[in-house]
Design a protein around this nucleic acid. Structure first.
Length: 323
DNA sequence: AAAGTCTTAAACACCT
DNA sequence: AAGGTGTTTAAGACTT
C-alpha cells in the first residue's frame, strides 16, 4: 500500500522559517499514535541480541520499532529489500535533554559521492593525528562503503584516503586496525562470496546491535573536539564539518512516496506515546537529507537542533549519502 | 587511586 | 616462499 507524505529537506533547516505547523498531507501509516516525528534512517537491524542489551540500546529498541515497518521507496535505490527492512533510528536522538548544549544551527552540505579524495581535501595537514579511535575509523570506513562491508585492505585504504595522517604514519596502525577488528565485538567477519572472491581475507561489517554505541562514540568525539578546538569548525578542513553556519536557505516541501510493509498488530500501538521521547529518522535522496513529518507536527528550534546533531553524527559515520 | 579503554607492538598460525 | 590476514597476549598511556 502506498501513500505519500511531505518531507522537509534537512539541508537547510532554518528554525525561524520552519517553526509552526507544517502543510503536510495525511499519512497515517507513518504517523505514530502520538504524532511523533518519524524519519527513515540508515540501515540497521534491531533489536539487539540479549547479550548486548543495555539501557542505551533498550531505548533505541523501544523507540524505533514502529517506524521500522515503513520503507522509503525512492531514496534507497541500489539497496535490497532486506536493507530497506532495516530502517530504524538513532538511539541517542531520542532524549531531547541529552543533546544540550547545542551548537549554533548549521546547514547540511552534502558530501560529494565517488570522490575518495574529498574528505582528505577537507582534512587538516597530515601531521595531526585524528581524534577518532581505531574502532571509529573502522566504523566510518565500513559505513561509507556501499555494501556496508569491507575487506581489511579497503579499510586501510579508506583511512589513508580520509585521514592523511596515516599516509605517513608507520605501519603499526594497520596492525592496530586488525587488532581492533578481531578484538572488538562491534565488528563481525563474514566470508566473501567464493564465486566472486577477489583478494585475500574476509569482509568486515558492523554488528547492528553495536552501531548505536559506535555512533554515540563518534558523536561524543565530534562534539568534544568541536567544543574544545577549532579543528572541527573549519568546514574546508574537515569532513565532519560540512555543516556551514549559514542559516539562510528557505525550507521547501517535497512529496515522497511511502510504502508500508506488513505491520504487526502489537506494533501499531505506540509504546512511547507518553514517554516524552521523539522518534527521529531521516534519509537522503539526491543532494538533500529529508525529515519526514506526520500531520500536525510542529518543528521547533529544539527539534531542528536535534536533527542537526543527527546529521552531524551520521555524516561523521561517513554513511550519510548511502542511506 | 583504581578500573576501564585505547594504542602499540609482537608473535604466531593460516591462507592465497 | 612471501606477503597479507586474523588472533592473541602484553604493556603502557590515557580517560573516567
Amino acid at each position: 500500500m502506498e501513500n505519500s507524505s511531505h518531507t522537509l529537506p534537512l539541508s537547510c533547516p532554518s528554525p525561524a522559517t520552519i517553526r509552526g505547523p507544517l502543510p503536510l498531507s495525511s499519512s497515517p501509516q507513518h504517523t505514530s499514535s502520538n504524532g511523533r516525528i518519524s524519519l527513515p534512517l540508515s540501515p540497521i537491524s534491531f533489536p539487539p541480541s540479549p547479550a548486548s542489551f543495555s539501557p542505551a540500546t533498550a531505548e533505541s529498541v523501544h523507540s524505533c520499532s514502529p517506524l521500522s515497518h515503513f520503507t522509503v521507496s525512492h531514496c534507497l535505490e541500489g539497496q535490497s529489500l532486506a536493507d530497506q527492512d532495516d530502517l530504524t533510528c538513532l538511539n541517542w536522538l531520542h532524549q531531547r535533554g541529552d543533546l544540550l548544549p547545542l551548537q549554533p544551527l548549521t546547514k547540511m552540505t552534502p558530501l560529494p559521492q565517488q570522490e575518495p579524495s574529498v574528505a582528505s581535501q577537507l582534512l587538516p595537514a597530515a601531521s595531526s593525528k585524528p581524534p577518532y579511535s581505531f574502532s571509529s575509523l573502522i566504523f566510518m570506513a565500513i559505513e561509507d562503503s556501499p555494501q556496508k562491508r569491507l575487506p581489511v585492505k579497503d579499510i586501510y585504504e579508506w583511512i589513508v584516503n580520509n585521514f592523511p595522517y596515516y599516509r605517513t604514519a608507520t605501519g603499526g596502525w594497520r596492525n592496530s586496525v586488525r587488532h581492533n577488528l578481531s578484538l572488538s565485538k562491534s565488528f563481525r567477519r563474514i566470508q566473501r562470496d567464493k564465486s566472486q572472491s577477489v583478494g585475500k581475507g574476509s569482509l568486515w561489517c558492523v554488528c547492528p546491535e553495536y552501531r548505536p554505541a559506535l555512533l554515540e562514540v563518534l558523536r561524543k568525539t565530534h562534539s568534544y573536539h568541536s567544543n574544545n578546538s577549532n579543528l572541527l569548525h573549519k568546514p574546508a578542513e574537515n569532513p565532519l564539518c560540512l555543516l556551514t553556519p549559514d542559516h539562510e536557505e528557505l525550507v521547501t516541501m517535497e512529496s515522497v512516496e511511502y510504502q508500508q510493509e506488513e505491520v504487526c498488530e502489537d506494533m501499531e500501538k505506540d509504546p512511547l506515546s507518553d514517554s516524552g521521547y521523539i522518534e527521529l529518522h531521516y534519509y537522503e535522496s539526491q543532494q538533500y537529507q529529508y525529515l519526514v513529518l506526520p500531520d500536525d507536527t510542529e518543528l521547533d528550534l529544539e527539534t531542528v537542533e536535534i536533527l542537526q546533531l543527527d546529521a552531524e553524527a551520521q555524516e561523521a559515520a561517513g554513511s550519510l549519502l548511502d542511506l
